[in-house]
Design a protein around this nucleic acid. Structure first.
Lengths: 357, 357
DNA sequence: TCTGCAAATGATAGCGCAATCATTGCGCTT
DNA sequence: AAGCGCAATGATTGCGCTATCATTTGCAGA
């Protein structure tokens, strides 16, 4: 377990076998000695430079640079109980939805000097619990987690942590602390309203990886169709596997097969599925939107350029990441947060794939 | 700067104003006291359970659970100089290429008990240098960084760190330590060969965000056309802005305009651009592949389902992340690494968008 | 001139944990 | 019965840094 540094050494121009000054880690004290000040002054130069006279500051900075000193963040965190770390838990790295949220988080947190420790929960509350423990062991100053599907134990940990926490992606009745999201159920409802408004009558549903948010969209779909007296459970096709364009095409085929093609519109629970359905429809020589409407969800960029362009529900993913981060930073700076619950809303982007009128 | 915990408190059922046991952080010593053993024994139960008798282990574990103890990783890292952190630097979070590599990294590193600290360098060596400092301040046990475009200072830091480092995505002549990637130049060359083989004569090039790897692909493209005596610098259209489907369409339009439409094939430097070009070609009523071939790069999933399906260069992104991680873990476990340089190769997926024969 | 106060710098202690070495007790050999 | 080796547990120390309080210096105001 010792001597794990022996690999890179060969890349360095080993001068002699004599002990080299660069062999041991450089600490605050080394910098202090080199610049003839006390350790605490070096610490100040790094963390509160305004408290050190300019001459000393320059002198110390020179020593820092020439020694190549890099502070040990663990020691700093331990001594100050401030880690400058924000924990983030998302269910999947391969879903563009989350990576865009992440972008927003990184943008804001990076600018504010926070590091982001990211974990992937694989859509599993149990794994999430484990990952949250991991995050908490790093004493993060704040936490951003996805949804409200935590285990009881996990909720306990989170509350005990006494740090600002934002649950993102969906709106929760009882958030652990703060909450930023939008109403998936209402969005699903509105999509169906739009399709009905365009004169489509038999509206199918395609879903994959039925996570809580997808379920809510489906409930909205169902409610709208029930109100219109047009709900038929046979029009729903779902699979627990991850969604993808390929799966979208397959589900579309099986929907058309199982309903003998009476379907005249499909609400796909995300754009990957919708693209798969669209391309499959083209191959089946089904005209979109004349014979069939296709609506996606998330409004990924490519949907605006397909032929026909794809109707979808636009969501401020990047903005959600930004908002959640800003809320945490406000709390950390003891500034008031306007509201603990923020509804980011959504917008149905009506494009060619659903306009028959 | 004090009292930053006051926000979440209101979510907790405050029993009384008396001091509550859960108010202070629980440490190893608390667990030790609660279970009647010494601190070091608790430490062993957590880190080397096989060294503690079963009875004690159970007894201590009970105390850990009931107190909800979560170890302080900073203290642990400081005392043991093992952080269980791997640093990862990528140029962009919004590029699917990197998120798939990340998936591979997370899969392997997570399973091996390592946390991943991820930073985004925004394609800037200067920002990368800053970010690498941030990573190193966390005393990572290993590092995965993208490409070989580091600043001199950054290289210095990296070598001084004496930890296993893998540079990924491209093959480097002189890697800092280890290297996993593939030959972008050769891939570009092979794409052109393929197009020429299909009888296309005037092959255009569309590129965006011309990072080093994209440049290499372009050099390969150029070399192949020069060898065939068919290079024309007017057939190249690039932009420094980030690539996207929208940009792909625009660049395609301007390529066709500036060349009066003599182009009969386009090599797009990635699939986003290629999709944009394909959809734009459809709108311009250009038949693909009869009148025009389109080839992308990266082989993202949706390209296999468009009509026509998109020829692209498939790269083992996930596998690259896995490989890099495995190499680091081997080094950390003092196991030999077969080779410090690994060529992951690539494969041209020949699909309908380029088959005229 | 002296007092008083703020700015600049330093000395000390301790954050929570694990490395290291010490101690105990037990079963085994001879 | 004495000695040995090993497994299980504990006491001490220090990782590198910052909080806290102490000290020094410079300078304005009386």
């Amino acid at each position: 377990m010792l001597a794990k540094n022996n690999n890179c050494v060969q890349n360095l121009p080993m001068k002699t076998t004599k002990k080299r000054s660069s062999d041991k880690k450089i600490t605050l004290v080394d910098v202090a000695d080199a610049s003839g000040v006390s350790a605490i002054t070096v610490s100040r130069v790094i963390n509160q430079p305004e408290k050190v006279s300019e001459s000393l500051r320059i002198q110390v900075q020179k020593a820092i640079d020439s020694l190549g000193y890099i502070p040990n963040q663990h020691a700093s965190s331990l001594a100050s109980s401030r880690s400058k770390v924000i924990g983030v838990a998302i269910p999947s790295l391969s879903n563009i939805v989350f990576t865009e949220v992440l972008r927003g988080i990184y943008e804001v947190m990076g600018a504010a000097g926070y590091k982001v420790l990211l974990v992937d929960t694989h859509y599993s509350p149990l794994e999430e619990e484990k990952m949250v423990r991991t995050l908490l062991s790093q004493s993060p100053e704040g936490l951003i987690i996805t949804g409200g599907d935590q285990t009881k134990a996990c909720q306990n940990f989170l509350q005990k942590a006494r740090i600002p926490i934002v649950q993102i992606m969906e709106l929760l009745a009882e958030p652990i602390d703060m909450n930023v999201g939008f109403a998936h159920g209402r969005a699903g409802f509105d999509v169906v309203q739009h399709l009905l408004g365009q004169g489509y009558q038999r509206i199918g549903f395609i879903g994959a990886r039925m996570d809580p948010r997808v379920q809510q969209r489906m409930q909205g779909y169902k409610l709208a169709l029930e109100q219109a007296g047009k709900f038929d459970k046979n029009f729903i096709v779902t699979t627990p596997e991850p969604s993808s364009t390929g799966v979208g095409g397959e589900l579309f085929k099986s929907l058309m097969a199982s309903t003998s093609g009476v379907i005249d519109a499909v609400f796909c629970v995300n754009d990957d599925l919708a693209l798969g359905a669209l391309f499959e429809a083209q191959r089946m020589n089904i005209r979109v939107p004349e014979d069939l409407a296709i609506c996606g969800f998330n409004d990924i960029e490519v949907g605006a350029y397909t032929n026909p362009s794809l109707t979808s529900v636009s969501v401020g993913r990047y903005e959600m990441g930004v908002k959640a981060s800003e809320m945490i930073i406000r709390v950390l700076n003891d500034k008031p947060v306007e509201s603990k619950k923020v509804d980011m809303g959504y917008e149905i982007k009506k494009r060619a794939s659903t306009s028959r009128l």
